[in-house]
Protein backbone atom coordinates (compact mmCIF):
# COMPACT_ATOMS: atom_id res chain seq x y z
CA UNK A 1 0.00 0.00 0.00
CA UNK A 2 1.61 3.21 -1.12
CA UNK A 3 1.62 6.51 0.70
CA UNK A 4 -0.30 8.15 -2.10
CA UNK A 5 -3.23 5.69 -2.16
CA UNK A 6 -5.70 8.26 -0.92
CA UNK A 7 -4.61 10.73 -3.54
CA UNK A 8 -6.33 11.54 -6.80
CA UNK A 9 -4.08 13.42 -9.16
CA UNK A 10 -6.58 13.29 -12.03
CA UNK A 11 -7.98 16.66 -10.87
CA UNK A 12 -4.78 18.38 -11.89
CA UNK A 13 -5.38 18.32 -15.65
CA UNK A 14 -8.71 20.22 -15.72
CA UNK A 15 -7.39 22.88 -13.35
CA UNK A 16 -4.24 23.62 -15.36
CA UNK A 17 -5.65 26.66 -17.26
CA UNK A 18 -6.75 28.15 -13.99
CA UNK A 19 -3.37 27.58 -12.34
CA UNK A 20 -1.69 29.02 -15.44
CA UNK A 21 -3.52 32.31 -15.05
CA UNK A 22 -2.41 32.39 -11.41
CA UNK A 23 1.19 31.72 -12.44
CA UNK A 24 0.96 34.54 -15.00
CA UNK A 25 -0.01 37.00 -12.29
CA UNK A 26 2.78 35.73 -10.04
CA UNK A 27 5.26 36.23 -12.90
CA UNK A 28 3.89 39.69 -13.72
CA UNK A 29 4.11 40.74 -10.09
CA UNK A 30 7.67 39.42 -9.83
CA UNK A 31 8.90 41.12 -13.00
CA UNK A 32 7.32 44.52 -12.29
CA UNK A 33 8.50 44.50 -8.67
CA UNK A 34 11.99 43.49 -9.84
CA UNK A 35 12.29 46.23 -12.45
CA UNK A 36 10.70 48.90 -10.26
CA UNK A 37 12.50 47.67 -7.15
CA UNK A 38 15.94 47.73 -8.75
CA UNK A 39 15.29 51.21 -10.19
CA UNK A 40 14.02 52.66 -6.91
CA UNK A 41 16.59 50.67 -4.97
CA UNK A 42 19.43 52.19 -7.00
CA UNK A 43 18.07 55.68 -6.31
CA UNK A 44 17.81 54.79 -2.61
CA UNK A 45 21.39 53.51 -2.60
CA UNK A 46 22.65 56.69 -4.25
CA UNK A 47 20.68 58.71 -1.71
CA UNK A 48 22.20 56.76 1.19
CA UNK A 49 25.71 57.32 -0.14
CA UNK A 50 25.12 60.97 -0.99
CA UNK A 51 26.70 63.84 0.92
CA UNK A 52 23.32 65.50 1.44
CA UNK A 53 22.67 64.42 5.02
CA UNK A 54 18.85 64.74 5.18
CA UNK A 55 18.52 62.73 1.97
CA UNK A 56 20.89 60.04 3.27
CA UNK A 57 19.05 59.88 6.59
CA UNK A 58 15.63 59.63 4.97
CA UNK A 59 16.79 56.82 2.68
CA UNK A 60 18.45 54.96 5.55
CA UNK A 61 15.32 55.31 7.64
CA UNK A 62 13.10 54.01 4.83
CA UNK A 63 15.32 50.99 4.18
CA UNK A 64 15.65 50.08 7.86
CA UNK A 65 11.93 50.36 8.54
CA UNK A 66 11.03 48.19 5.56
CA UNK A 67 13.62 45.62 6.58
CA UNK A 68 12.45 45.28 10.16
CA UNK A 69 8.74 44.66 9.58
CA UNK A 70 7.34 41.39 8.25
CA UNK A 71 6.44 41.63 4.56
CA UNK A 72 2.96 40.43 5.48
CA UNK A 73 2.43 43.52 7.61
CA UNK A 74 3.67 45.75 4.77
CA UNK A 75 1.18 44.09 2.44
CA UNK A 76 -1.64 44.70 4.93
CA UNK A 77 -0.52 48.30 5.51
CA UNK A 78 -0.56 49.23 1.81
CA UNK A 79 -3.89 47.50 1.26
CA UNK A 80 -5.38 49.50 4.12
CA UNK A 81 -3.77 52.88 3.61
CA UNK A 82 -3.71 53.47 -0.16
CA UNK A 83 -7.52 53.55 -0.54
CA UNK A 84 -7.68 55.88 2.46
CA UNK A 85 -5.28 58.29 0.78
CA UNK A 86 -6.70 58.12 -2.74
CA UNK A 87 -10.28 57.86 -1.59
CA UNK A 88 -10.89 55.08 -4.09
CA UNK A 89 -10.89 51.32 -3.60
CA UNK A 90 -7.90 49.58 -5.11
CA UNK A 91 -7.86 45.97 -6.28
CA UNK A 92 -5.73 43.45 -4.41
CA UNK A 93 -3.61 42.87 -7.54
CA UNK A 94 -2.64 46.53 -8.03
CA UNK A 95 -2.07 46.97 -4.34
CA UNK A 96 0.26 43.96 -4.41
CA UNK A 97 2.27 45.41 -7.30
CA UNK A 98 2.75 48.72 -5.48
CA UNK A 99 3.63 47.00 -2.20
CA UNK A 100 6.22 44.69 -3.66
CA UNK A 101 7.90 47.43 -5.68
CA UNK A 102 8.21 49.63 -2.60
CA UNK A 103 9.23 46.77 -0.31
CA UNK A 104 11.77 45.14 -2.62
CA UNK A 105 13.35 48.53 -3.32
CA UNK A 106 14.66 48.46 0.25
CA UNK A 107 16.35 45.09 -0.24
CA UNK A 108 17.66 45.86 -3.73
CA UNK A 109 19.07 49.13 -2.42
CA UNK A 110 21.23 47.29 0.09
CA UNK A 111 22.61 45.15 -2.73
CA UNK A 112 23.25 48.11 -4.99
CA UNK A 113 24.91 49.99 -2.14
CA UNK A 114 27.33 47.10 -1.63
CA UNK A 115 27.84 47.02 -5.40
CA UNK A 116 28.64 50.72 -5.59
CA UNK A 117 31.05 50.39 -2.70
CA UNK A 118 32.73 47.44 -4.40
CA UNK A 119 33.85 49.68 -7.27
CA UNK A 120 37.34 50.96 -6.43
CA UNK A 121 37.59 54.64 -5.50
CA UNK A 122 40.13 55.10 -8.29
CA UNK A 123 37.39 54.51 -10.87
CA UNK A 124 35.52 57.58 -9.63
CA UNK A 125 38.73 59.61 -9.69
CA UNK A 126 39.43 58.45 -13.21
CA UNK A 127 35.95 59.53 -14.29
CA UNK A 128 36.31 62.91 -12.65
CA UNK A 129 39.77 63.33 -14.17
CA UNK A 130 38.12 62.98 -17.57
CA UNK A 131 35.88 65.90 -16.66
CA UNK A 132 32.71 63.93 -15.91
CA UNK A 133 30.16 65.29 -13.45
CA UNK A 134 28.47 63.21 -10.70
CA UNK A 135 25.65 61.98 -12.90
CA UNK A 136 28.02 60.96 -15.70
CA UNK A 137 30.49 59.24 -13.38
CA UNK A 138 27.68 57.27 -11.80
CA UNK A 139 25.80 56.29 -14.93
CA UNK A 140 28.78 55.53 -17.20
CA UNK A 141 31.43 54.30 -14.79
CA UNK A 142 30.22 53.24 -11.36
CA UNK A 143 26.69 51.87 -11.79
CA UNK A 144 27.44 49.59 -14.75
CA UNK A 145 30.28 47.97 -12.78
CA UNK A 146 28.22 47.80 -9.59
CA UNK A 147 25.37 46.24 -11.49
CA UNK A 148 27.59 43.63 -13.13
CA UNK A 149 29.34 42.73 -9.88
CA UNK A 150 26.02 42.32 -8.09
CA UNK A 151 24.06 40.61 -10.87
CA UNK A 152 24.05 37.18 -9.19
CA UNK A 153 22.96 38.68 -5.87
CA UNK A 154 20.25 40.76 -7.55
CA UNK A 155 18.93 37.64 -9.25
CA UNK A 156 19.05 35.62 -6.03
CA UNK A 157 16.99 38.38 -4.39
CA UNK A 158 14.55 38.10 -7.30
CA UNK A 159 14.12 34.37 -6.62
CA UNK A 160 13.30 35.24 -3.02
CA UNK A 161 10.88 37.89 -4.33
CA UNK A 162 9.24 35.27 -6.56
CA UNK A 163 8.66 33.06 -3.52
CA UNK A 164 7.48 35.98 -1.37
CA UNK A 165 4.76 36.93 -3.86
CA UNK A 166 2.82 33.97 -2.46
CA UNK A 167 2.11 36.18 0.58
CA UNK A 168 -0.44 38.22 -1.41
CA UNK A 169 -2.62 35.34 -0.27
CA UNK A 170 -3.28 37.53 2.79
CA UNK A 171 -5.21 40.13 0.75
CA UNK A 172 -6.76 37.64 -1.64
CA UNK A 173 -4.89 38.55 -4.84
CA UNK A 174 -5.20 35.75 -7.39
CA UNK A 175 -1.66 34.46 -7.71
CA UNK A 176 -0.46 30.90 -8.23
CA UNK A 177 -1.02 29.85 -4.63
CA UNK A 178 -4.48 31.41 -4.46
CA UNK A 179 -5.40 29.72 -7.74
CA UNK A 180 -4.31 26.38 -6.29
CA UNK A 181 -6.39 26.98 -3.21
CA UNK A 182 -9.49 27.87 -5.21
CA UNK A 183 -9.02 24.89 -7.54
CA UNK A 184 -8.52 22.67 -4.50
CA UNK A 185 -11.83 23.84 -3.09
CA UNK A 186 -13.66 23.45 -6.41
CA UNK A 187 -12.62 19.83 -6.79
CA UNK A 188 -12.47 19.17 -3.05
CA UNK A 189 -8.85 18.05 -3.48
CA UNK A 190 -6.76 20.67 -1.62
CA UNK A 191 -3.97 18.24 -0.73
CA UNK A 192 -3.13 17.34 -4.32
CA UNK A 193 -3.26 20.99 -5.32
CA UNK A 194 -0.88 22.12 -2.58
CA UNK A 195 1.55 19.35 -3.48
CA UNK A 196 1.40 20.26 -7.14
CA UNK A 197 1.88 23.96 -6.56
CA UNK A 198 4.83 23.26 -4.23
CA UNK A 199 6.37 21.24 -7.03
CA UNK A 200 5.90 24.11 -9.50
CA UNK A 201 7.54 26.58 -7.14
CA UNK A 202 10.38 24.17 -6.46
CA UNK A 203 11.12 23.45 -10.11
CA UNK A 204 11.13 27.14 -11.04
CA UNK A 205 13.21 28.32 -8.09
CA UNK A 206 15.66 25.42 -8.26
CA UNK A 207 16.30 25.92 -11.99
CA UNK A 208 16.69 29.66 -11.57
CA UNK A 209 19.13 29.23 -8.70
CA UNK A 210 21.20 26.79 -10.80
CA UNK A 211 21.25 29.42 -13.53
CA UNK A 212 22.47 32.05 -11.08
CA UNK A 213 25.22 29.73 -9.90
CA UNK A 214 26.31 29.21 -13.48
CA UNK A 215 26.29 32.95 -14.07
CA UNK A 216 28.27 33.56 -10.91
CA UNK A 217 31.00 31.21 -12.09
CA UNK A 218 31.16 32.98 -15.46
CA UNK A 219 31.35 36.43 -13.91
CA UNK A 220 34.08 35.22 -11.57
CA UNK A 221 36.14 34.14 -14.57
CA UNK A 222 35.73 37.43 -16.41
CA UNK A 223 36.98 39.41 -13.43
Amino acid sequence: MSMFDNFDFSVLAPSLPFLWSGLLFTAKLTLIAMAGGIFLGTLLALARLSAITPLALAATWYVNVMRSIPLLMVILWFFLVIPLITGQPMGAENSAILTFTAFEAAYYSEIMRAGIQSVPRGQVWAGQALGMNYRQTMSYIVLPQAFRNMLPVLLTQTIILFQDTSLVYAIGAKDLLKAAEVAGKNYNRPVEMYLFVALIYFVICFSLSRLVKHLQARIAIIR
Partner: peptide, 23 residues
Protein backbone atom coordinates in the same frame (compact mmCIF):
# COMPACT_ATOMS: atom_id res chain seq x y z
CA UNK B 1 18.85 22.71 2.12
CA UNK B 2 17.59 22.81 -1.48
CA UNK B 3 14.12 21.58 -0.51
CA UNK B 4 13.52 24.24 2.11
CA UNK B 5 15.13 27.03 0.10
CA UNK B 6 13.14 26.62 -3.08
CA UNK B 7 9.54 26.49 -1.85
CA UNK B 8 7.81 29.60 -0.42
CA UNK B 9 7.44 29.49 3.35
CA UNK B 10 3.67 29.94 3.12
CA UNK B 11 3.38 26.94 0.78
CA UNK B 12 5.55 24.95 3.22
CA UNK B 13 3.11 25.88 6.00
CA UNK B 14 0.27 24.43 3.93
CA UNK B 15 2.32 21.34 3.11
CA UNK B 16 2.93 20.63 6.79
CA UNK B 17 -0.63 21.45 7.79
CA UNK B 18 -2.67 19.82 5.04
CA UNK B 19 -0.43 17.39 3.16
CA UNK B 20 1.90 15.78 5.69
CA UNK B 21 -0.90 14.35 7.88
CA UNK B 22 -2.22 12.56 4.77
CA UNK B 23 1.15 10.87 4.25
Amino acid sequence: VEFYRNIPLLVQMFLWFFVVPEL
